[in-house]
Design a protein around this nucleic acid. Structure first.
Lengths: 130, 130
DNA sequence: CTTAAAATTAGGAACCATTCCTAATTTCGG
DNA sequence: CCGAAATTAGGAATGGTTCCTAATTTTAAG
């Protein structure tokens, strides 16, 4: 099972130890502490491989660079479109019913990977300097 | 009310006429037909202004450049993380209950703007050349 | 109208995040 | 071991987007 390169292992370790939705750059900085010679392209390449393998999840941001999440436990995300803050939360979406609706409406039997809430957080509502 | 520049009007018109989730580049190409001298920076700047004003919505993609949607009617999106296809659909998410859960779990009274499903579409499941 | 201030523009440079390229190194299977 | 396959470091290249500037357009007031 452990047939990853040590660089890829180090990246996955960083993700497990930092459940804070880091950007690729932040992952790179953290991995540097374990593997000081690692290159940024290796980090990007392995992040993509880990996403492809389903080990980590890419979070699609409205602002700023993409972020990544280690899936220690199933959860959803609520993302503030103004400040980019990501909140983990649990909600029992009725995926079966949503799947059925999708099939009915779009004629496509999708596999649902995740459900994300986009909105405006409390701070951004009150700090509304516009 | 019509105190938009003609360039901004043209962009909004293009969005109303093309409910196909275009990228910024595609919007630029379409607007060129109406305003042949428009520059790409004007398109980007006005897209951002229209998003800020809530006239159009930015869709956060797992792959490829961001896409935009004119909100002719409230709907949700199901996005394929592999091919980037976007499907419009209607589902009566219980936003009040979700809001309450968010407040309880993350202690933040967010305004929910949209709920997006990320998954793998039927085609990408069967065309799985991996 | 005239005019000054404010907003917007075109065009291109700059920027940032990410991917691609290459030659060298490491890992894997037999 | 040994050859093939995978991975790496490092840097160049790319793509998408934002920023800068001087010129133009729009707006509001007189």
């Amino acid at each position: 099972m452990n047939n990853y390169s040590k660089q890829r292992e180090a990246i996955l370790d960083v993700m497990k130890e930092n459940l804070v939705h880091p950007t690729a750059e932040e992952i790179y900085q953290l991995v540097l502490e374990k593997e000081p010679q690692i290159s940024k392209s290796t980090v990007y390449r392995n992040i993509n491989i880990l996403v492809e393998l389903g080990e980590i999840k890419k979070l699609n941001m409205t602002i700023g660079p993409d972020r990544y999440d280690y899936l220690y436990k199933e959860h959803s995300h609520a993302i503030c479109e103004k400040c980019g803050n990501i909140f983990d939360f649990y909600y029992n979406f009725n995926k079966d019913e949503i799947s059925k609706e999708l099939l009915k409406q779009i004629g496509n039997n999708m596999d649902i990977n995740s459900i994300t809430i986009y909105g405006i957080c409390e701070d951004c509502k009150s700090n509304n300097k516009k």
